[in-house]
């Protein structure tokens, strides 16, 4: 069963009139987006159109110039640092480059966010939590490996495991299949669907890989010139005769 069907109207992320500029370059110019619980929304756009900027604004790696961002009912732009850190624990972020810490082993990479967010007076079985997270991405037994020993696909999986270890309610994927061969890319797409189903996450997936869009999207938002240009299911958009949309499918 499609997980989004159960909670179709429960809004998890709501973005209104988001604006972000870099000098004279207006990357986001009044962007709007609503993501419902259990839904995978793909933001589709050409390189340099502000897709990554959008999700970096959601976790406040970048501060927008105007607009509002609500995640799980909390206005992200009003949070103090400590509140922001607590909110960030509920949001998993997979970076384009996976961003694994080179100086740490896989085990230490997964433990790093855990140690920041676990309550001090509760005893946790950290080793088991790491094992479980690695099992959920199909990479059990890699604890002692360093990021340099991992393939591109494995790095992405470990990156996903590192975010899953905190049981996030929201996942943000920044071009998850970029730089991977088609087979590994497909595996990552399946993994994202498994994460959606198993962890009941709501996700924004940034991509221009049409296989990824086709496999993972419950809904697609096309971002052109910093605004929502079109929105719909993959099949809806595929049928469109608009040349700006057709260019992604041709």
């Amino acid at each position: 069963m499609n997980p989004m069907a159960e909670n179709r109207n429960e809004t998890v992320i709501e973005i209104r009139n988001l604006e972000k500029s870099f000098g004279e370059n207006h990357v986001l110019a009044g962007f709007n987006l609503v993501v419902n619980k259990g839904e995978n929304v793909v933001v589709l756009g050409r390189s340099g159109t502000g897709k990554s900027v959008l999700i970096k604004c959601i976790v406040r790696l970048l501060d927008p110039h105007a607009g509002t961002i609500h995640v799980l009912g909390t206005n992200m732009l009003d949070l103090k640092q400590e509140e922001l850190d607590n909110m960030r624990a509920k949001i998993g972020f997979l970076f384009q480059s996976s961003a694994l810490y080179d100086s740490m082993t896989v085990q230490e990479n997964l433990e790093f966010p855990l140690r920041r967010h676990l309550k001090r007076n509760v005893k946790y079985d950290i080793a088991k939590m790491v094992d479980d997270a690695l099992l959920s991405v199909g990479l059990k037994g890699t604890q002692k490996m360093s990021p340099a020993e991992l393939s591109g696909g494995m790095r992405k999986r470990i990156g996903i495991a590192r975010t899953l270890i905190l049981n996030p309610e929201v996942m943000l994927y920044d071009e998850p299949t970029t730089g991977l061969d088609p087979v590994t890319g497909r595996e990552i797409n399946h993994l994202m669907l498994e994460v959606q189903e198993k962890f009941r996450t709501s996700s924004i997936i940034i991509s221009h890989d049409m296989n990824c869009v086709r496999m993972t999207a419950n809904r697609v938002v096309v971002l052109i010139e910093g605004k929502n240009y079109a929105e719909g299911t993959y099949d809806d958009l595929k049928k469109s005769q608009d040349k700006n949309i057709k260019q992604f499918f041709d």
Binding site: K56, V59, L61, Q81, D85, N86, R88, A89, I91, F93, F95, Q96, S97, A99, L100, Y101, D102, S103, F112, P113, R116, H117, R162
Partner: peptide, 21 residues
């Protein structure tokens, strides 16, 4: 070099979103 390479490979951003300053 170490902090610089962490910066360009988004490891510093990853640290920030994991709630570490």
């Amino acid at each position: 070099a170490e902090i610089g390479s962490m910066k360009v490979t988004e490891q510093i951003d990853a640290m920030e979103v994991s709630g570490t300053n």
